[in-house]
Amino acid sequence: MHYSFNWALIFSDEYGRWFLEGLSITLQLSGLSIILALVLGTMLTTMRLSRIKPLVWFAVSYIEFFRNTPLVVQIFFWYFGSDPILPDFFKHWLYQQNIEFAIGVIALSTYTAAFIAEELRSGILSIPKTQLEASRATGLTFLQAMGYVILPQAFRIVVPPLISQFLNLIKNSSLAMTIGVMELTYMARQVEAHTFHGFEAFTVATLMYLSLSLLVSLGINQYNRRCLRVSR
Protein backbone atom coordinates (compact mmCIF):
# COMPACT_ATOMS: atom_id res chain seq x y z
CA MET A 1 0.00 0.00 0.00
CA HIS A 2 1.26 3.43 -0.80
CA TYR A 3 1.25 6.08 1.93
CA SER A 4 1.53 9.66 0.71
CA PHE A 5 2.69 12.15 3.31
CA ASN A 6 0.59 15.25 3.66
CA TRP A 7 2.05 17.68 6.16
CA ALA A 8 0.08 20.62 4.79
CA LEU A 9 -3.17 18.97 5.84
CA ILE A 10 -1.93 18.60 9.42
CA PHE A 11 -0.98 22.26 9.60
CA SER A 12 -4.16 23.43 7.96
CA ASP A 13 -6.26 25.91 9.90
CA GLU A 14 -8.63 23.38 11.34
CA TYR A 15 -6.25 20.61 12.38
CA GLY A 16 -3.52 23.04 13.34
CA ARG A 17 -5.97 24.62 15.76
CA TRP A 18 -6.87 21.23 17.20
CA PHE A 19 -3.22 20.62 18.02
CA LEU A 20 -2.86 24.02 19.64
CA GLU A 21 -6.01 23.47 21.68
CA GLY A 22 -4.70 20.08 22.76
CA LEU A 23 -1.31 21.56 23.65
CA SER A 24 -3.00 24.29 25.64
CA ILE A 25 -5.02 21.75 27.66
CA THR A 26 -1.86 19.69 28.23
CA LEU A 27 -0.10 22.80 29.51
CA GLN A 28 -2.94 23.71 31.86
CA LEU A 29 -3.35 20.14 33.07
CA SER A 30 0.38 19.67 33.72
CA GLY A 31 0.98 23.15 35.11
CA LEU A 32 -1.85 22.98 37.60
CA SER A 33 -0.96 19.40 38.58
CA ILE A 34 2.72 20.27 39.11
CA ILE A 35 1.81 23.10 41.47
CA LEU A 36 -0.65 20.98 43.45
CA ALA A 37 1.76 18.02 43.51
CA LEU A 38 4.51 20.25 44.89
CA VAL A 39 2.28 21.62 47.63
CA LEU A 40 0.90 18.20 48.54
CA GLY A 41 4.33 16.55 48.31
CA THR A 42 5.83 19.17 50.63
CA MET A 43 3.00 18.66 53.13
CA LEU A 44 3.48 14.89 53.04
CA THR A 45 7.24 15.17 53.64
CA THR A 46 6.70 17.59 56.50
CA MET A 47 4.18 15.19 58.06
CA ARG A 48 6.54 12.27 57.58
CA LEU A 49 9.37 14.11 59.36
CA SER A 50 7.17 15.65 62.06
CA ARG A 51 7.54 12.78 64.61
CA ILE A 52 3.81 13.04 65.28
CA LYS A 53 2.81 9.39 64.98
CA PRO A 54 -0.60 9.67 63.23
CA LEU A 55 0.79 12.14 60.67
CA VAL A 56 3.84 9.98 59.97
CA TRP A 57 1.62 6.94 59.61
CA PHE A 58 -0.71 8.78 57.24
CA ALA A 59 2.13 10.10 55.07
CA VAL A 60 3.88 6.73 54.83
CA SER A 61 0.70 4.89 53.84
CA TYR A 62 -0.23 7.59 51.37
CA ILE A 63 3.17 7.47 49.69
CA GLU A 64 3.29 3.67 49.50
CA PHE A 65 -0.28 3.47 48.26
CA PHE A 66 0.03 6.02 45.47
CA ARG A 67 3.50 4.97 44.33
CA ASN A 68 2.62 1.33 44.04
CA THR A 69 -0.59 1.33 42.03
CA PRO A 70 -0.85 2.07 38.28
CA LEU A 71 -1.76 5.62 37.35
CA VAL A 72 -4.44 4.51 34.86
CA VAL A 73 -6.18 2.56 37.59
CA GLN A 74 -6.05 5.63 39.82
CA ILE A 75 -7.49 7.80 37.06
CA PHE A 76 -10.31 5.31 36.45
CA PHE A 77 -10.91 5.03 40.17
CA TRP A 78 -11.27 8.79 40.56
CA TYR A 79 -13.47 9.03 37.49
CA PHE A 80 -15.67 5.94 37.75
CA GLY A 81 -15.29 4.71 41.32
CA SER A 82 -14.79 7.54 43.77
CA ASP A 83 -18.41 8.68 43.90
CA PRO A 84 -19.46 6.74 47.04
CA ILE A 85 -16.55 7.95 49.16
CA LEU A 86 -16.33 11.64 48.21
CA PRO A 87 -18.04 14.11 50.55
CA ASP A 88 -21.12 15.82 49.11
CA PHE A 89 -19.79 19.36 49.09
CA PHE A 90 -16.74 18.18 47.14
CA LYS A 91 -18.88 16.30 44.60
CA HIS A 92 -21.05 19.35 44.26
CA TRP A 93 -18.01 21.51 43.56
CA LEU A 94 -16.59 18.90 41.18
CA TYR A 95 -19.74 18.75 39.04
CA GLN A 96 -19.57 22.50 38.51
CA GLN A 97 -16.12 22.13 37.00
CA ASN A 98 -15.08 20.57 33.75
CA ILE A 99 -15.18 17.23 35.51
CA GLU A 100 -12.82 15.28 33.22
CA PHE A 101 -10.19 17.99 33.51
CA ALA A 102 -10.65 18.30 37.27
CA ILE A 103 -10.33 14.53 37.78
CA GLY A 104 -7.24 14.58 35.55
CA VAL A 105 -5.64 17.22 37.78
CA ILE A 106 -6.60 15.37 40.97
CA ALA A 107 -5.26 12.03 39.72
CA LEU A 108 -1.99 13.42 38.33
CA SER A 109 -1.21 15.60 41.34
CA THR A 110 -2.08 13.07 44.05
CA TYR A 111 0.00 10.45 42.21
CA THR A 112 3.04 12.65 41.55
CA ALA A 113 2.95 14.12 45.08
CA ALA A 114 3.97 10.71 46.46
CA PHE A 115 7.13 10.71 44.34
CA ILE A 116 7.92 14.35 45.05
CA ALA A 117 7.54 13.70 48.79
CA GLU A 118 10.15 10.96 48.63
CA GLU A 119 12.60 13.07 46.60
CA LEU A 120 12.16 15.96 49.00
CA ARG A 121 12.66 13.74 52.01
CA SER A 122 16.02 12.58 50.74
CA GLY A 123 16.91 16.22 50.11
CA ILE A 124 15.93 17.22 53.64
CA LEU A 125 17.86 14.33 55.17
CA SER A 126 20.98 15.54 53.38
CA ILE A 127 20.78 18.95 55.10
CA PRO A 128 22.91 18.86 58.28
CA LYS A 129 20.79 18.39 61.43
CA THR A 130 22.57 21.40 62.91
CA GLN A 131 20.58 23.66 60.57
CA LEU A 132 17.34 22.61 62.22
CA GLU A 133 18.97 22.88 65.63
CA ALA A 134 20.33 26.37 64.95
CA SER A 135 16.98 27.64 63.71
CA ARG A 136 14.98 26.05 66.54
CA ALA A 137 17.49 27.54 69.00
CA THR A 138 16.46 31.05 67.92
CA GLY A 139 12.84 30.31 68.81
CA LEU A 140 11.49 29.39 65.37
CA THR A 141 8.75 26.75 65.48
CA PHE A 142 9.21 23.43 63.65
CA LEU A 143 7.07 24.64 60.75
CA GLN A 144 8.89 27.99 60.52
CA ALA A 145 12.26 26.24 60.60
CA MET A 146 11.11 23.91 57.83
CA GLY A 147 9.64 26.72 55.75
CA TYR A 148 12.42 29.28 55.99
CA VAL A 149 15.54 27.22 56.59
CA ILE A 150 15.27 23.53 55.71
CA LEU A 151 12.94 23.32 52.70
CA PRO A 152 14.54 26.14 50.67
CA GLN A 153 17.88 24.34 50.93
CA ALA A 154 16.35 20.92 50.29
CA PHE A 155 14.52 22.12 47.18
CA ARG A 156 17.75 23.26 45.59
CA ILE A 157 19.39 19.92 46.20
CA VAL A 158 16.51 17.98 44.70
CA VAL A 159 16.06 20.08 41.57
CA PRO A 160 17.43 17.39 39.21
CA PRO A 161 15.14 14.59 40.50
CA LEU A 162 12.25 17.08 40.70
CA ILE A 163 12.71 17.92 37.03
CA SER A 164 12.37 14.27 36.14
CA GLN A 165 9.17 14.10 38.20
CA PHE A 166 7.83 17.13 36.34
CA LEU A 167 8.69 15.52 33.00
CA ASN A 168 7.03 12.28 34.10
CA LEU A 169 3.95 14.26 35.01
CA ILE A 170 3.84 15.99 31.63
CA LYS A 171 4.15 12.65 29.85
CA ASN A 172 1.66 11.00 32.20
CA SER A 173 -0.85 13.75 31.48
CA SER A 174 -1.50 12.00 28.15
CA LEU A 175 -3.27 9.27 30.15
CA ALA A 176 -6.02 11.77 30.90
CA MET A 177 -7.29 11.10 27.38
CA THR A 178 -8.65 7.79 28.71
CA ILE A 179 -11.38 9.70 30.55
CA GLY A 180 -11.90 12.12 27.67
CA VAL A 181 -9.75 15.11 28.57
CA MET A 182 -9.09 16.79 25.24
CA GLU A 183 -5.36 17.19 25.72
CA LEU A 184 -2.63 16.82 23.14
CA THR A 185 -2.70 13.04 22.69
CA TYR A 186 -6.49 13.03 22.51
CA MET A 187 -6.40 15.72 19.82
CA ALA A 188 -3.68 13.94 17.84
CA ARG A 189 -5.92 10.88 17.88
CA GLN A 190 -8.80 13.03 16.62
CA VAL A 191 -6.71 14.43 13.78
CA GLU A 192 -5.65 10.91 12.86
CA ALA A 193 -9.27 9.71 12.86
CA HIS A 194 -10.33 12.55 10.58
CA THR A 195 -7.42 12.50 8.16
CA PHE A 196 -6.06 8.94 8.32
CA HIS A 197 -2.63 10.58 8.49
CA GLY A 198 -1.46 8.89 11.69
CA PHE A 199 2.24 9.28 10.97
CA GLU A 200 2.02 13.06 10.66
CA ALA A 201 -0.45 13.47 13.50
CA PHE A 202 1.61 11.55 16.05
CA THR A 203 4.88 12.98 14.79
CA VAL A 204 3.55 16.45 15.54
CA ALA A 205 2.32 15.35 18.98
CA THR A 206 5.66 13.70 19.72
CA LEU A 207 7.62 16.80 18.77
CA MET A 208 5.34 18.97 20.87
CA TYR A 209 5.86 16.77 23.97
CA LEU A 210 9.59 16.67 23.28
CA SER A 211 10.00 20.42 23.00
CA LEU A 212 7.81 21.03 26.02
CA SER A 213 9.91 18.67 28.16
CA LEU A 214 13.19 20.13 26.94
CA LEU A 215 11.99 23.66 27.62
CA VAL A 216 10.92 22.76 31.15
CA SER A 217 14.19 21.08 32.09
CA LEU A 218 16.29 23.78 30.44
CA GLY A 219 14.34 26.54 32.18
CA ILE A 220 14.56 25.03 35.65
CA ASN A 221 18.24 24.17 35.30
CA GLN A 222 19.00 27.70 34.23
CA TYR A 223 17.11 29.11 37.20
CA ASN A 224 18.80 26.74 39.62
CA ARG A 225 22.26 27.58 38.31
CA ARG A 226 21.57 31.24 39.00
CA CYS A 227 20.47 30.45 42.56
CA LEU A 228 23.45 28.21 43.24
CA ARG A 229 25.88 30.86 42.10
CA VAL A 230 24.83 33.24 44.86
CA SER A 231 24.37 30.93 47.79
CA ARG A 232 26.77 27.98 47.73
Binding site: A134, L140, R232
Partner: peptide, 27 residues
Amino acid sequence: IGIVFQQFNLYPHLSVLRNITLAPVKV
Protein backbone atom coordinates in the same frame (compact mmCIF):
# COMPACT_ATOMS: atom_id res chain seq x y z
CA ILE B 1 18.70 32.67 75.11
CA GLY B 2 21.28 33.10 72.37
CA ILE B 3 23.59 30.26 71.41
CA VAL B 4 26.73 30.21 69.27
CA PHE B 5 27.89 26.85 67.95
CA GLN B 6 31.29 25.46 67.09
CA GLN B 7 30.37 25.12 63.40
CA PHE B 8 28.66 28.57 63.07
CA ASN B 9 25.55 26.94 61.52
CA LEU B 10 24.66 29.98 59.45
CA TYR B 11 21.92 29.49 56.85
CA PRO B 12 23.82 29.10 53.56
CA HIS B 13 20.87 30.10 51.34
CA LEU B 14 20.29 33.46 53.05
CA SER B 15 22.37 36.62 52.99
CA VAL B 16 24.18 37.69 56.15
CA LEU B 17 21.47 40.27 56.79
CA ARG B 18 18.64 37.74 56.38
CA ASN B 19 20.48 35.28 58.62
CA ILE B 20 20.27 37.86 61.37
CA THR B 21 16.76 39.23 60.77
CA LEU B 22 14.95 35.91 60.28
CA ALA B 23 14.22 35.14 63.94
CA PRO B 24 13.45 38.72 65.08
CA VAL B 25 10.95 39.10 62.23
CA LYS B 26 9.34 35.65 62.46
CA VAL B 27 9.51 35.02 66.21
